[in-house]
Design a protein around this nucleic acid. Structure first.
Lengths: 331, 331
DNA sequence: TACAGTTAGGAAAAGCTTTTCGGGCTGTTT
DNA sequence: AAACAGCCCGAAAAGCTTTTCCTAACTGTA
């Protein structure tokens, strides 16, 4: 099953066999045919290890994630795999589970396998420590940026995404817009709140309720916060929520109070997590971070870096508005 | 950054450097110290490619999935990664996206990289075509079994899981138990229905409504099916649902009709998908397929096969009952 | 002093592929 | 007729590590 066997079977030298299979140099068509035939016969597959050893490039990239169970890593990973092209580039996957020691262990293993580059996927959009600059391969940080601005990072633009949500609500004629979101400690929560406030301020408006309602990222919080909000501010006519679960909770609470969504209160979420958005009644509008595009972009940046391009800094990718029943006038 | 550099820096031969770092043969402690020091200094990482080329084993396994976005592959993958041990074994991930051509392409790439073994993760529990037996490495099928009984497969025991759910409902004193589930075409739907019916039959009972309510795996179906069911069979006191989304829809429909869960009707789902089970009111009891254990087991079977063990056939792993508010008496 | 037994370290092969270089050969040009 | 160009193929090196075998030196003993 090695090239030597193929060469022997075809009655040529190893060098000729190699050239025949790779289309290099001068090989008589008839000879080439014999070699190809022999290779097929023994189902020869060139050994990538030997190839990589020689070429210095392995056609493998490492994907270091910290939150595989979470729903953010996977789309990024998909996009990256997509960009690499089927079979051309392979992905070595490691999940550090938020543990720095485990991470450095994985990193070591990846470097030993001579990956051509690394993509680091954060578990949140909070900046994370850089892997450093003395690595022998380029690194791209996706979803969560590196703390070091000299690194290359690709992240979703939460601020603009929030503005998109507010824009949409404004376009529906809503003016009393509240914002319920998750833990204040998350940069994602801060960014989305900032984006929403800024956009409202541009229109001379302020958040209904006077402030951002921080809590946690759960439906339960969405329910209780929305309920209390409506209680205290009956004029609220729209709620922008920090994620889809909160939004779904808000929808349920509003319906429980006998109000209609979106008739009385329009609701929009964030993340566009299908299982949540399509399960609710009415279905939930949301802001999609388009993580697959983000993953693809990260892969492209990595390719560029592998090919010698320099560049650095944090690149913010736009979000997409996905309109469903919870903000649809006709509903 | 190669062993040669380390050896030169430490003033020894390559062979000695190798032995010093790997603890083989006779090396003077002082020499060893010098070598280790030198290796650390240039941050030497042994080239896995060269190592693998020599040893014939690469410490890499291929993970071929068909449904990365789906929620079943990931826990399996996690469990497998877990079993392999951090840094010791690496995982090459490929997503064929249900495309046979893409799959064979990925397979080729994995074999070229000389993986030590393969785990194939199905996108459903329906049997899938075997990769064949002329592969140079062992293969274990996880979640979805191979159609070929000579292969090694590890799958969740849906039949027993359904019986577990029925047992639980019976233990609450419920006797009029209905079953709402997804498309009849899915083996998972059939197995769960069969397990439920069998367990009921053992108690001399039959399904409330007289038949299994097949539909799709959505909340919307759960709502409409549960609503119609209660309408026609007011005596129903429990519903076993084929997945969590259907169950959540059922809960909502029951509450909409002014009945209480679990007071009037107990509801239990399947899959234990946290975002669905913990978001509902009350929180949803469910059957957990424990996919991480499944992944771990698949990895162990693969290890065994790599080490020469034979064995074959489909191994069914038990499910776990997770009790929450929707079947809790006190609630 | 010679020898056996340890101990330390080096030379070289193996593992597989790709690429470079050079040697035959045929046919053509001067 | 001689030289040259073009074509085809093979020998060998490079890429990096591990392991086996071997030599040299040293310790202790007969």
């Amino acid at each position: 099953m090695t090239l030597k066997d193929v060469a022997a079977l075809a009655g040529v030298s190893i060098a000729t066999a190699s050239k025949a299979l790779n289309g290099r140099g001068y090989v008589h068509p008839q000879t080439r045919e014999r070699v190809v035939e022999a290779a097929k016969k023994v189902s020869f597959t060139p050994n990538s290890l030997a190839r990589g050893l020689l070429a210095g490039r392995t056609g493998t990239v490492g994907l270091l994630t910290n939150d595989l169970v979470g729903r953010f890593s996977i789309p990024v990973l998909m996009g990256a795999e997509d960009a690499f092209g089927t079979g051309k580039m392979s992905v070595l996957l490691c999940d550090a589970r938020g543990d720095a020691i485990r991470e450095s262990y994985h990193l070591q293993a990846l470097l030993a396998r001579r990956v051509d580059g690394l993509i680091v996927v954060g578990s949140s959009t909070d900046p994370r420590p850089s892997l450093g600059h003395d690595l022998p391969v380029p690194v791209v940080y996706a979803y969560g940026p590196s703390q070091d601005p000299r690194d290359v990072s690709v992240v979703p633009d939460n601020v603009a995404g929030a503005a998109l949500a507010i824009d949409h609500l404004l376009s529906l004629g809503r003016r009393n817009i509240a914002h319920i979101t998750g833990q204040e400690g998350y940069l994602a929560a801060q960014d989305r709140a900032a984006g929403a406030s800024k956009r409202l301020a541009e229109e001379g408006l302020a958040l209904a309720g006077g402030r951002v309602l921080y809590g946690d990222w759960s439906e339960a919080w969405g329910r209780s916060a929305a309920s209390a909000l409506i209680e205290q501010n009956p004029t609220v006519d729209a709620i922008f929520c920090g994620n889809d679960q909160i939004a779904r909770g808000a929808i349920d609470a509003i319906r429980d109070r006998g109000l209609s969504v979106p008739g009385d209160v329009a609701v929009i979420g964030f993340d566009d997590w299908q299982v949540v958005t399509t399960g609710s009644r009415p279905q939930l509008s949301s802001i999609d971070m388009d993580l697959e595009t983000l993953g693809r972009t990260a892969a492209q940046r990595l390719f560029a870096a592998i090919d010698g391009s320099e560049g650095s800094g944090v690149e913010h990718l736009p979000c997409r508005l996905v309109v469903r029943g919870s903000t649809m006038d006709g509903a």
